[in-house]
Design a protein around this nucleic acid. Structure first.
Lengths: 100, 100
DNA sequence: GTCTACATATAGAGAGTCTACATACAATGA
DNA sequence: TCATTGTATGTAGACTCTCTATATGTAGAC
């Protein structure tokens, strides 16, 4: 989850609600992330220093806009590598053994 | 985790300890699953009906050998499909956007 | 006699996700 | 005018899974 959020914030800063929409769009509607997952995750990522946030008011609505920090970008790079290794490992174990 | 266990039991029935070794072997040593993960998982899978077990004594040591049920095999097939979709979805979101 | 490998199992901590709820403003439509 | 839908943030509590640590016991090697 954390890596996904960092990934959508890589291109441009977004607020929580927009992040949820971005995740849905990028996944072709597959990913349906509830607010109870995203908002705690954002706070967690900010506390860790991977994100920074600012309040803004747009059209009478308050938004908390998050942006990726340098630290967060570095972490994202590591997560991408780890994801690739993870997929290879799990895929290798899950793969059916041919009997011959 | 559950799918990984089902996968290693697809070829032949194994007992808990052997499952841990099989997971390590298949992953090239990457996967190091502690007993506190495997044994509860095995009981869970048996309770669900995906596995069945029998006690055996080999060389003075007691073994509980688990085998895949038909239900478990069906579940494994579904999990493999789900894994593929999951990888595509996450990979798609995680993938860096080229700016052009 | 002690250490390592084999073998199973549980208790409790920790972390993350989900459901459900609470709040509030804007815009649309009946 | 009032209800509904969409935008927007957030928390509480339940739930599930994984991990660490611990407990127990046998077999074989040194």
């Amino acid at each position: 989850m954390d890596a996904l959020i960092l990934a959508v914030l890589e291109d441009a800063p977004l607020h929580g609600y927009a992040i949820i929409e971005a995740l849905q769009e990028r996944s072709g509607g597959t990913l349906n992330v509830p607010t109870g997952t995203v908002y705690p995750a954002l706070r967690r990522l900010e506390r860790t220093g991977f994100l920074a946030s600012e309040w803004a008011t747009v059209g009478g609505r308050k938004r908390r806009t998050y942006r990726l920090t340098a630290s967060g970008a570095g972490h994202l790079a590591g997560e991408r590598t780890a994801w690739g290794e993870f997929v290879r490992t799990i895929g290798g174990v899950l793969q059916p053994r041919t009997e011959s």
